[in-house]
């Protein structure tokens, strides 16, 4: 029995170190959710998660590549093995934990806010409200009296508010504040921010313990040495 345990431990160590040096990790992201992730003018994935992800890969020794994928199918494609990790501003929720596993959070829960055209009052919060499909915001709205309209991308959602197709949109405050700052006063926050998120983490296949352990340790280290906070301050003011 003892032998077996030692043997197993050795095997794990051996595979762990050997693979940690060579393993290519494909990180899936949406590329449409600044400041978390977006495609910059050089056609590269950019944003908070790119910077953090690259740092994590550097620490763990994985060889990382970034791929973009529609938000709607980002979880099924992870499960199918088309990439190995998700870093896409994804909140850690119980529903998602049934399909995938998460590392510890690398960003504390971001409040969600309602976005509306200037001059709107709080009644829009129970009117026709847009959200990106398969998000915590869309499942939150489904339980409120508001009429939910789902859009596949954040961009489409904001466009719907702009042209009056919907009364308001509910999304991550960090994403919306960029939009509002640039709108020249046409768009505003309405109501109080909601605390419906538990924090953002990296999504992984449930079977992939190797990645989870490695990334968990690395995130913890960045958190302890203050590097993570510097990045958060940089991207989220």
């Amino acid at each position: 029995m003892k032998k077996l345990i030692i043997g197993l431990a050795l095997a794990v160590c051996a595979s762990g170190t050997a693979m940690a040096q060579e393993r290519t990790v494909r990180i899936g992201t949406e590329g449409a959710y600044p400041p978390y992730n977006f495609i910059n003018d050089n056609g590269q994935v950019d944003g908070f998660e790119r910077e953090l992800g690259d740092r994590l890969c550097e620490m763990t020794g994985f060889n990382c590549t970034w791929v973009t994928n529609d938000w709607d199918t980002i979880i099924p494609n992870l499960v199918a093995g088309n990439y190995d990790a998700i870093m896409a501003g994804m909140s850690i929720t119980d529903a998602r934990k049934e399909m995938i596993s998460f590392t510890q959070r690398y960003k504390p829960g971001d409040p969600s806010s309602f976005l509306a055209l200037e001059g709107a009052d709080e009644s829009v919060m129970t009117g026709v409200v847009a959200a990106q499909s398969n998000t915590i915001q869309s499942s939150y709205l489904a339980d409120t009296p508001a009429t939910l309209v789902e859009f596949p991308t954040p961009e489409d959602m904001v466009a719907a508010v702009r042209n009056g197709e919907v009364d308001a949109a509910l999304a991550n405050s960090a994403y919306l504040s960029d939009v509002i700052n640039e709108s020249g006063g046409r768009l505003v926050f309405v109501g109080e921010p909601l605390d419906i998120a538990d924090g953002v983490g990296m999504g992984l296949r449930q079977s992939d313990n190797e990645l989870r352990e490695a990334f968990d340790a690395a995130i913890k280290e960045l958190e302890d040495n203050g590097e993570l906070q510097v990045m958060l301050d940089k991207w989220f003011n």
Partner: peptide
């Protein structure tokens, strides 16, 4: 779609939709 989508000042050339 990617280029035409509205860009905030996170990007080098911000513009509307």
């Amino acid at each position: 779609r990617e280029l035409g989508g509205s860009k905030t000042s996170r990007y080098e050339y911000p513009h509307g939709d």
